[in-house]
Design a binder for these strands. Structure first.
Lengths: 207, 207
DNA sequence: TAGATTGTTAATCGATTAACAATC
DNA sequence: TAGATTGTTAATCGATTAACAATC
C-alpha cells in the first residue's frame, strides 16, 4: 500500500478536476499551479503538494498540460468509468437526485429508484419508474449496481444499509442524518447541517 | 471578539444538537460526553473540548443535563429562531429544497422560490408559486429574507449573488459548483463532489 | 542564458487526543 | 467518602504553507 492520502486532498481532487475541465474548455493548453489555486481560492503550494501524492505531472518553468492533467485526474478519481447508481427512497431528495443531470454528466448513471411505500411504486421519475424495495434482490441479479444513494427516513436507514451491504454494494452516499454502521465506504451529505453552519456564521459574523 | 472557534467545531455543533434532541426524546435526563461521543463515533475529549469553547455546561461526576445542553446549543447555533429562506432556481435541486420537510422542522422556512425561466414561473412547488427573478426586489421590500439558497446554473450564480448581496441577504447556501466572490457567509454544498469522493474511496479501497 | 514554475523539504499552523486535577 | 465525569492543559498528530533547489 502506498502512502496514505489525507482526506482533504481527496475532497480537493474533484475541485481540481472540474477546474481543469473549465480550463480545457477555455482552450488553455498549459496552466500553472498558481492559476489553478487562484480560481479555487487556495494556495499554489497546496495544489502542487496535493498532486505530488499521485505523481509528477508538471513541467518546471511551464506548468501542467491541461488536457494531460485532466486525464490523469480522471484516472485517479475514477471518473473515467461509468458508475451504476440506485436511489433508495423516492421522496423529495431521492427524486431530485434521480433526476439530476449534473450527476449523469459526471458519469454517475441512476439506473433504478426504490421505495418501501407502495403508494409511490409505479410513479415515474424522469425515465425511471419507482420500484418497491422488495424487488431489490431481483434487481441486483439483473444489473450491476455499484453505488446506492440513501434517501430514506432516519429510522429505516440502518436496515437498508445492512441489506445493501449483503447484496454487495460498493459505496453509499447517505442523505439520512445518522451515522451508518457498515464497512463499505460512505459519504455523508447533510443539507440541514449546512444550514445550521450558516446560521451559526451569520449569528457570529464570521467571514 | 472572543477566541476563534475552529471550523470543524462549527460543523459538529449541529451533530451535537441533533444527538441531544434524540437523547431528550428517549427520556434521558443526564448524559456523559462519553455517551454523546459514542453515538457520533468521535472521542469524548473532543465533545468536551468543543463545548468548552462556549462555556461550562456539565456537572463533574454527573454529565450534562440533556434538556439544558440542548437549549444552550440552540442559542449557540441560532436554531432557537426561525429563519426566512428563499430559493433561487426552480430546477430539480431548488424544488427539492423548497419542498424539504427536514428544513422546516429545523426552523428554516422557505417563503419564496424564484427562477429566471418564464416557463417555470407560476408553477406550484408545495405551497409556493414560482416567481420570476425580476420580482425579487419587490419581494425583499415586503418580506424579511435572511438566507438564500442558490440552485441556479453555474454561469448565473455570480450575478445572482451580487444581486442578493445588494438586497442585503445575510447568508447563502450555494449548490452551484463555483467559488462565489462575496463578503457574506456562504456554505457550499456540492453533491457531485460527494459522489467523486466516494468513487475515489471505492477505487482505492479506503475505509 | 534568463525567467518561470515545478516538486519537495522543513517550518508553521491548527485540530485531536490523552491525561489528570478539580469537583460533583 | 468513593466513584464518576467534567474542564483544561500539554502532547500528539495531521494539514497547510513558505521557501528553494532542480530544471524546463
Amino acid at each position: 500500500m502506498e502512502k496514505k492520502i489525507p482526506r482533504p486532498v481527496i475532497k480537493r481532487l474533484g475541485l481540481y478536476y472540474r477546474c481543469l475541465n473549465r480550463l480545457y474548455d477555455e482552450g488553455i493548453e498549459y496552466v500553472a499551479s498558481k492559476d489553478i489555486a487562484e480560481r479555487l481560492g487556495i494556495k499554489s503550494s497546496q495544489v502542487r503538494k496535493d498532486l505530488s501524492y499521485f505523481g509528477e505531472f508538471g513541467k518546471r518553468g511551464v506548468g501542467y498540460n491541461t488536457y494531460e492533467l485532466m486525464e490523469r485526474l480522471e484516472d485517479i478519481i475514477g471518473v473515467n468509468k461509468y458508475w451504476n447508481v440506485i436511489v433508495i427512497g423516492a421522496g423529495n431528495i431521492g427524486s431530485a437526485i434521480a433526476n439530476y443531470e449534473g450527476l449523469r454528466k459526471e458519469k454517475f448513471n441512476v439506473i433504478g429508484i426504490f421505495d418501501a411505500d407502495r403508494s409511490k411504486v409505479g410513479r415515474k421519475i424522469g425515465r425511471l419508474t419507482v420500484k418497491h424495495f422488495s424487488e431489490i434482490d431481483d434487481f441486483f441479479k439483473k444489473n450491476i449496481v455499484e453505488i446506492a444513494v440513501l434517501a430514506v427516513p432516519e429510522n429505516a436507514a440502518q436496515m437498508v444499509v445492512d441489506k445493501l451491504e449483503e447484496l454487495g454494494i460498493k459505496g453509499i452516499v447517505n442523505f439520512a442524518p445518522v451515522k451508518l454502521r457498515t464497512n463499505i465506504p460512505v459519504e455523508d451529505v447533510d443539507i440541514t447541517l449546512s444550514f445550521k453552519s450558516l446560521s451559526f456564521k451569520i449569528e457570529r459574523n464570521i467571514e
